[in-house]
Computed example of a mutant assay.
Amino acid sequence: MADIKKFADDGQDLYIRMSASELEEEDDGKAKTRIIKDQLKDIREGNQKNEGSQKEDLELPLFNISTIASATDNFSDYMKLGEGGFGPVYRGTLADGQEFAVKRLSRSSGQGFNEFMNEITTIAKLQHRNLVKILGCCVQEEEKMLIYEYMANRSLDNFIFDQTRGELLSDWPKRFNIICGIARGLLYLHQDSRLRIIHRDLKASNVLLDDEMNPKISDFGLARMLTGGDQTQGNTKRVVGTYGYMAPEYAADGRFSVKSDVFSFGILILEVISGRRNKGFYHPDHSHNLIGHAWSLWKEGRPLELIDTLLGSSCNPSEVLRSIQVGLLCVQHHPEDRPSMASVVIMLGSDIALAQPKQPGFFSEREHEAGRPHIGNESSTNEISISLLEPR
Rank of each mutant, 00 (worst) to 15 (best):
N316A: 13
D308R: 02
R366I: 10
K6F: 07
E319L: 08
T33I: 15
L226E: 07
S379I: 08
H283K: 03
D28Y: 07
S66Y: 09
G241Q: 08
M1N: 11
G84Y: 03
S313P: 05
E271D: 10
G234E: 03
H293D: 01
L169M: 13
S387L: 15
R196A: 09
Y78S: 13
Y90K: 04
R302N: 09
Q356H: 10
S66H: 13
R91L: 12
S385H: 01
Q231G: 02
T381V: 06
I65E: 02
E26Y: 09
E115R: 04
D27H: 11
R184A: 08
Q48C: 13
E149R: 03
G229Y: 04
G349D: 14
G85C: 05
E300R: 11
P284M: 08
K49S: 15
E369A: 15
Q231R: 03
Y250T: 09
F220T: 02
S205P: 04
S350T: 15
G229R: 09
A95F: 06
L321C: 10
V139W: 06
N206M: 03
S108K: 13
L297R: 08
I386L: 12
P360E: 10
N130W: 01
L268Y: 03
V258E: 14
G110E: 12
F220R: 00
S343W: 01
A251D: 11
N214M: 09
H368G: 13
K133P: 03
D57A: 10
I123E: 06
G292K: 03
Y78Q: 05
S364G: 02
L354C: 00
R154L: 15
L226R: 00
C137G: 10
D42T: 06
P61G: 09
M1Y: 07
S287P: 02
F100N: 01
I197L: 01
T67R: 05
L268F: 07
D192P: 00
D261G: 09
N177Q: 14
F116G: 09
V239F: 02
D27V: 08
A252M: 11
N278C: 11
E378T: 06
F7H: 12
I324W: 07
D157Q: 05
L222T: 14
K30Q: 13
P391F: 06
I269W: 05
N278K: 04
I324D: 05
D219W: 02
R255V: 12
L195I: 05
Y90H: 07
R302Y: 03
E249V: 05
Q231Y: 00
N130S: 15
L156I: 01
S21D: 15
N316R: 07
Q191L: 08
E115C: 10
V326Y: 01
A183W: 06
L321Y: 12
I160W: 01
Q140T: 06
H128W: 10
E83L: 02
S287H: 10
G229N: 15
V132Q: 02
V139P: 04
E300F: 03
A370C: 09
I178W: 00
L195H: 04
D10K: 12
E271A: 10
I178V: 14
L94R: 04
D285V: 12
L311P: 00
N64L: 10
